[in-house]
Computed example of a mutant assay.
Amino acid sequence: MEYVQERIATLHEFGEGDGMRNDLARDAAAAVGETAVIVPMTAREYESPAAERVLGELERLEPAPAAVFVPVRAAADEIGPFREWIDSFALPARVLWCNAPGVDALFAEAGLAGGFGKGRDVWLALGPAADAGGAVVVHDADARSYEAEHVRRLLAPLTMEYEFSKGYYARVERGRLYGRLFRLFYEPLVRTLADAHDAPIVDYLGAFRYALAGEFAASARLARRLRAPRAWGLEVGTLGDAYEVAGFGGTAQVDLGRHEHDHRAVAGDAGLEGMSREVAAALLRVFEEHGVDPDYETLPERYRAVGAELIDQYRADAAFNGLEYDPADERDQLTRYAESIAPPGPDARLPRWIDAPFAPADVLAAARPWRERRVGSRSQD
């Protein structure tokens, strides 16, 4: 247990007392009723144990959230059963079919056709969510350890006049360290840039204890000002915009304990190797926008050197805690991830919702699944 503060407010779970102070707990609980929750999914999460747990925990919130948006990419023959499954939960839930023909047409007409992924899905829900509540909470659906209390904990800083709240947690499972893309790519790359550049944005992005966590809360005002990368750069892009809107003083991070997530393979476009390219592009774009000019010729080599130092530290930490650790495998990941370090290329981020070429109501209409709501459904349309 520790109580170290970063450049942003860091709210720990000390394990002492009965949790949040009564007035803060009351304010955070009340805020739930004025909050829209976004839970992005893919069709593979249909009836998965982790997603079932997440939705079941959301049912336990009192009061219920103002709205729950579930953006999903699914084939035409999958969307009906998926929506029936979502309808089976006692939630004010609305499914947004992110690859519906109407959504594709809406993007094409607005000149926004192109790449898609998690960032595009969440962005589709951000506009409607910001209209539905005074705050927005976003979290993934693959956490097998998810608890309803996480929503209240993420919202607590917003009741204390912070505007952006990011979750962090330990990724230790089955006797091993996980969180590999953060530990072995994001963290050493940010440290490498911090060694060469004295810039506030470097300090800000280095202050997050798990910058790639999918869990955050934001005021509706801030949510409307997020420019989402279309795929796996979402979390980093969100931090860049949070810096501009909330800054150090308006940002907090909240201890969410220990999370157990699904795990990806390292190699290939669908693995962490592919994700690292999108994270790198988003991260380096944020740095460049805020006056940091990386030396791309030497950056990969310097990154590997910093990463090697971290691997020595992880090996010591794992041994101290009796965990399995394979430094050769981790060094191999450094080599793979180093190939992702390059100038970010064209900016394909989606616009802020305050500048969007269509309204949230247009998204709700375009992303509506083709099937009519079944009689007796608990969800709201």
Rank of each mutant, 00 (worst) to 15 (best):
D23F: 05
V138M: 07
M41W: 08
A194L: 14
A170Y: 15
E187G: 06
L155N: 05
G133P: 09
L234F: 15
G119I: 02
C98P: 02
M41L: 15
V39S: 04
A366D: 07
R21K: 09
E187V: 10
S88F: 02
A252T: 01
E339L: 14
L126Y: 03
E52R: 11
R336M: 10
E147V: 01
Y314G: 00
D332S: 10
Y325V: 09
L96W: 02
F89A: 05
A141C: 12
E244Q: 09
R315G: 03
Q333A: 09
E288G: 05
A338T: 11
V375S: 15
V68D: 04
P101Y: 01
F185K: 07
D317F: 03
L310Y: 05
Y303V: 00
P101H: 00
L256S: 09
D362P: 11
L272G: 08
R227Q: 15
V39C: 06
Y3K: 05
G291L: 03
A348N: 15
G56Q: 04
E47D: 15
D23L: 12
E13W: 14
A90P: 02
A281M: 02
N321I: 00
F182V: 09
G134N: 08
G167S: 11
D329E: 14
K118S: 06
A31H: 07
T192C: 14
D312V: 00
E78T: 00
P200W: 10
V68G: 06
A108Q: 11
G247W: 01
L350P: 14
V292F: 08
R209M: 14
Y337E: 01
Q313R: 10
E297R: 12
E163M: 10
Y243S: 03
A199D: 15
P65L: 01
D23Q: 12
D142G: 00
E289L: 08
N321M: 01
E244I: 01
M20G: 05
L310A: 06
G80Q: 13
R331D: 08
T35N: 10
D142R: 03
Q313W: 00
N22W: 11
P357V: 07
F82A: 11
